[in-house]
Computed example of a mutant assay.
Amino acid sequence: MNRPEKGMQFAKNIKVIDWLKTDMLNQIANLFKGLYYANRHILIDSLSSLIVSTYILARRMGLSFRELDQAIIDKLREHKNEGHQLEQWYGDLSSLEEYMNKR
């Protein structure tokens, strides 16, 4: 690959990263609308879109899906060990960690 092609690829990657960031902001706005209207379809759609965009953004930034999964599991364990309230009140962190480990 010659120099101009590398530059074009870099510029394209930056553009995709910016697009993903704006898409994530849009999905957060949609999530808030779903919460406001108590609309299950909007909630599921916006949350799933956020997760997909997060994984793709990580990949565009040079991280693998596996690395992101492991970082999530590590973060869950860290929060559990620190006595996070969601774990104390509902056991949410343990439930998510168990789910991710079974995948």
Rank of each mutant, 00 (worst) to 15 (best):
R60H: 13
F32L: 07
L35C: 14
R59G: 04
K33V: 08
V52F: 06
M61A: 10
Y36T: 03
D45F: 01
L57Q: 10
Y37L: 13
I28R: 08
I28Q: 15
D45C: 01
Y55S: 03
R40M: 05
D45Q: 04
R60A: 12
I44V: 02
T54Y: 02
H41S: 09
I56Q: 15
N30F: 04
R59D: 10
S53Y: 07
M61C: 13
I44W: 01
L43Q: 15
Y36K: 08
Q27W: 05
N39H: 14
L47S: 13
G34V: 04
I51M: 10
A58H: 02
R40F: 03
L35G: 15
I42M: 10
I51F: 06
G62I: 00
Y55H: 06
A38D: 12
A29N: 14
L47W: 09
T54R: 00
L47C: 14
L47Q: 14
R60G: 06
A38F: 00
L43I: 14
A29H: 13
N30M: 09
G34H: 04
S46D: 05
D45I: 00
V52Y: 09
G62Y: 02
F32K: 05
N30W: 04
I44T: 00
Y37Q: 14
Q27F: 08
H41G: 04
K33T: 10
D45W: 00
S49P: 04
I56K: 15
S48Y: 07
A58I: 01
G34E: 10
G34A: 06
R60N: 13
S49C: 09
Q27Y: 11
M61R: 13
G34T: 05
I28C: 15
G62W: 02
L47G: 08
A29M: 13
I56C: 15
S46L: 05
S46A: 14
I44Y: 00
H41W: 02
S49I: 05
S49H: 05
L35P: 15
Y36S: 06
S48H: 10
F32G: 03
L57F: 05
L43H: 07
R59I: 00
D45V: 01
L47T: 10
N30H: 07
L57R: 03
T54Q: 02
I28P: 13
G62N: 06
T54K: 01
Y36V: 00
R60W: 09
L31W: 04
G62E: 12
L31I: 06
V52D: 05
I28V: 14
A58Q: 02
Y36R: 06
S48R: 11
L31E: 10
I42N: 04
N30C: 07
S53M: 09
